[in-house]
Design a protein around this nucleic acid. Structure first.
Lengths: 233, 233
DNA sequence: ACAAAAGTGTTGAGAGTACACCCATGC
DNA sequence: GCATGGGTGTACTCTCAACACTTTTGT
């Protein structure tokens, strides 16, 4: 019993491997998609997996996540958040590997060289139609989706999936895709505008038919986390 | 760049130590307190710290957390939840140690042999008057408090800090202590009862002066997580 | 009978929800 | 001039928040 307490020399203990995995979400072709990589070596060779990396000894977890993200997508300065740590002893058949999962929201137009890198095959997959996945990555993706939906409801995070400028209809569509639920146009607009987190750019977009739409952008000075009314008590 | 990708042999990489730390919350003497242990060895010898343990190679993270909890408090079957993983390269001066933080809610009357164990000195500290702490444990405690307050507002988790049976006044006081905010008695009662997560036990408690209060208990079949109304959109 | 804590309802304000038509542009 | 998507207002309902007195018990 005594040897469990934390005071003791860490070097006495066998150490697990630690990785990060980054669930990269984007909106592609009116669908919520995650970026996956095809594994080139065992275990789970040729299966799709969430992009990840081993954590270097001199590197913070967030830095490792950013590194993997830049590596796979070429994007920097995107919304990234720690999700959960998965550490089942048998999640990797080789050895004990604990993974700290992150999720990132990237605007589709910002992703530069994925898919199509040489080192590993990458592709976008619909979150609602996933292939078989390596390790416990299916569980991680489902968890990430749950968290994204939650976050969408009480923080202003939806913009992170859109280009700098967007129309209200595009924003509404983003919400509808993620929540898988139809929203009322007038109520959506009133609510999102009264939250005072958007500003008009003055520019309009004309694309195809119909009346041109006002382009909005996210107000940098806005508080992203608006307090929700509490349920209890 | 290539050696960052996850496919490669984990044994090639230097491995960090991984620990769990468990923030144990309870309500003691009308105050929200956390259980801390006094360190007996360097680094931070003689400083207070969150109880924790190294993760064994054949043990899940949750199992390690439960083990540390039983070790320090003697309680089993209490509410435990993973909080966040802290992995700054310099958070432990000896070597790289990544810690997965958990928090636990325990009813004060359930804690058996803490404080007062022989192996290490343990004590309850008010969350609003903390001593200097080892490592980044102050940050972990503050994060745990923030999370607890959040959770309190959209899930029915407050009961976990109370005995099996409790009065509505006791429950209200628990909320007031944690949120550090006075609540209206009538509104509190209406709201908590309409959520249908409590049931009357039929028993009453008489303690000291005043009218005896109905004892309630948490309904096991109740859904703990009640959906809050969304803010966006 | 009085001190102490438990218990109980109503009203006004604000937010949420449901719902249908006119507007600007391209073809 | 018509097809296409953009943009707007109102009425009803429900939830929230504020507020004070009566009841039951022990002493």
């Amino acid at each position: 019993m005594m040897d469990l307490v934390e005071h003791y020399d860490p070097s006495k203990y066998e150490r697990p491997s630690v990785t990060i995995d980054v669930v990269v979400f984007s909106l592609v072709a009116d669908d919520l998609k995650a970026l996956l990589v095809k594994r080139k070596s065992p275990p789970f060779s040729e299966m799709w997996a969430i992009p990840g990396a081993f954590v270097r000894l001199d590197e913070s977890l967030a830095a490792a996540a950013t590194r993997a993200l830049v590596e796979e997508t070429g994007v920097e300065d995107v919304y990234t958040e720690q999700l959960y740590t998965f550490g089942d002893p048998n999640r990797d058949p080789r050895t004990r590997v604990i993974t700290v999962a992150y999720f990132a929201l990237v605007p589709y137009d910002a992703v530069r060289h994925a898919p199509g890198r040489e080192t590993s095959e990458t592709a976008w997959f619909s979150m609602f139609d996933l292939p078989p996945l390596a390790f416990d990555h299916h569980e991680i993706l489902e968890y990430a989706l749950t968290r994204l939906r939650y976050k969408l409801e009480y923080t202003a995070v939806g913009f992170q999936l859109l280009p700098d400028m967007f129309t209200l209809t595009e924003l509404q569509k983003a919400y509808e895709i993620i929540l898988q639920e139809k929203l009322d146009k007038r109520n959506f607009r009133r609510k999102i505008l009264s939250a005072a987190i958007l500003e008009e750019t003055g520019q309009k977009r004309q694309e195809g038919e119909g009346r041109p739409a006002m382009l909005y952008k996210y107000r940098e000075d806005a508080v992203a986390e608006v307090k929700t009314r509490r349920l209890f008590p």
